[in-house]
Structures are given as structure tokens and as C-alpha cells.
Design a protein around this nucleic acid. Structure first.
Lengths: 145, 145
DNA sequence: TTTATTGCAAATCCTTTGCAGTTAC
DNA sequence: GTAACTGCAAAGGATTTGCAATAAA
């Protein structure tokens, strides 16, 4: 595990859990996924490194890592669950509904939305990982043409 | 069907589809759900009026009504699919993660977010039915106490 | 050694599909 | 009458679970 920003193994042990071969590999596989990866993508990557890891272990491990806040879970607009390494900065994602490309955006705009909603409705949203679909710059340009 | 704002039956016939007993009942059941209802809730309501309607018909009908834009589908943050009658005004929902209460909000704040994202990233989101979780006013007050 | 964690296979949950019978038009 | 639509039962896909074996501490 070369996740240099945090010492993941220590975080697990400190909370009384064991650092297993499988957990290391799952963490790696989620990490290599970059932005958002689905369970099957993670599983495929895992199979290449160690085909003996079972799907149920993957599910259990993703659940485990999510509880520890080492990875975060997000729900795409079409109902799929995806995962990514929990980074230090909260952020959100845009997914183009035409080309499927995904980009990350910072928290500023969304924070501003939350503040507005709080001001107007008294409700404070805390969704820390939105996935919004729409049209990306290039697909919009193509459509306009 | 007493959906007075629109003539649903006509909308179906005009597009060449049949207006069946089942479609009327599903539309009613979604309607009575108010804000967001899940498939099982809708099914339960349906059973009381006509136990002979099958679950597969419910799924098919929800799909059908969604395509016709008579109902809209939304994805809650915890991965469930929910439905509601398509209203004339686009809007979004806030769901309290403590008490579960749900409230509707207008499109203004979210529109503003979309415009900001477009300005900064060139990406135009078009999610027309966001469901955001967070803490409602009363649960926040209770927490503060 | 001890008990958390794993792999396997079976179970569960939610949704979709094939097909023969029914019904809106 | 004739397609579109439905109910049923079976299939599918994703995720969870029970249990005996394994391995991290």
C-alpha cells in the first residue's frame, strides 16, 4: 500500500481491526480506480493481482472501509454504487450523460448551495459527495453545431 | 383518476397507448404517496384497492409512466428508487437523516448552483430532481440543546 | 493461542422477461 | 378483431449470510 497521504494500516489497527492481505489489495484497487469505480471494476482489478479473493470479501471489505471512512460511497443518478478513496478535501462529481466522462469539482459551489438552503429553509444538507449528471463542455459544443 | 391538473388519460391515448384499469390505479397510488414513495409502498397501497395487480405490472407501469413523463423517478442517497407524480414545477427534496421527514424545495437555489457550475467548469448539470440529505431545522435545534 | 476475517455456497432481495391469456380500442 | 397489455412463474443480477477453515495479533 503506497497511499502516502494517510497511514491506512495504522488507522485500522488503532481501531482494533486486523490489516489483512485482502484489505490492502482492495484499498489499492479502489485507489487505482481514480475518481469513481464500481464494484465490478474493482473486482476485475483485484482478480489480476490475486484471483483467490472472493466477491463476498470484496463487499464486506468495501463496507468495512466505508465505515472507517477510508473510502467513500456515492450513488450515481442511474442507481449504481461507486467507491473512491476518501480524500482530505470533500468534493463532488459531474458525469456527462452523453459521453460518460466524469470530472471532479471542488466543494465551493455546493457549499454555497447548502448555505442558501439553510438560510431559506432552515435545513442544512450535508451530502458530501454529490454526483450530478448533465452535459459536458464538449458535448454541448457538439450539440450546438 | 382525479388528477385535475392534467388530463392523464388523454395524454396516454394521444400518444397511442391504452388507458387500462391498472395504469389508472398505479397513477392514483403514486399520487397518494405525496412526496416520494418507493415501489413497495406503492404496491401496498395498490393491493388494498385491487389485490390482483401483479408486481411485474407495477414495475412495467412505473417504467411506462416515467417514459411518458407522467411520474418522475428519483434516487435517494441510500440507493432506493422513488417515484412521484410529475408536477408542472421542477423541484427538489430534502430528507432529514435523523427524523426521516422530507420537504420539498423550489428550483431556485439549485438552478443557481447549476449556473455557477456552468460558469466555472463549462459543464451544465440537468438533474431535475435532487434528493439531498442533511438535518432539518427541528433536529438541529434538538442537537444543539 | 485466540478470535477476527476469509472463501464457499446458498440464500435473499429487487427487478426483468417469456409466454399464453385478456382487454382496450 | 387485433395489438397492446396483463398475470404468472421463472430468470437475472446484485448483495448478504451461515459456517467451517484460515491467519493476524
Amino acid at each position: 500500500m503506497s497511499h502516502n497521504t494517510r497511514n491506512y494500516a495504522k488507522m485500522m489497527r488503532d481501531r482494533g481491526f486486523r490489516v489483512t492481505h485482502q484489505r490492502r489489495l482492495v484499498l489499492d484497487a479502489v485507489c487505482e480506480g481514480g475518481a469513481h469505480t464500481t464494484v465490478d471494476e474493482i473486482y476485475a482489478r483485484l482478480q489480476q493481482k490475486d484471483p483467490s479473493i472472493s466477491l463476498s470479501t470484496l463487499y464486506r471489505t468495501l463496507d468495512f472501509l466505508t465505515r472507517l471512512h477510508l473510502v467513500v460511497e456515492a450513488r450515481t443518478p442511474d442507481g449504481k454504487t461507486s467507491y473512491e478513496i476518501a480524500s482530505l478535501q470533500p468534493h463532488h462529481h459531474l458525469v456527462c450523460r452523453t459521453c460518460g466522462r466524469e470530472e471532479q469539482i471542488g466543494p465551493e459551489e455546493v457549499q454555497h448551495l447548502y448555505a442558501e438552503i439553510e438560510r431559506v429553509y432552515g435545513f442544512l444538507p450535508d451530502e458530501d459527495h454529490l454526483v450530478l449528471s448533465g452535459l459536458c463542455r464538449s458535448c454541448r459544443a457538439r450539440q450546438a453545431a
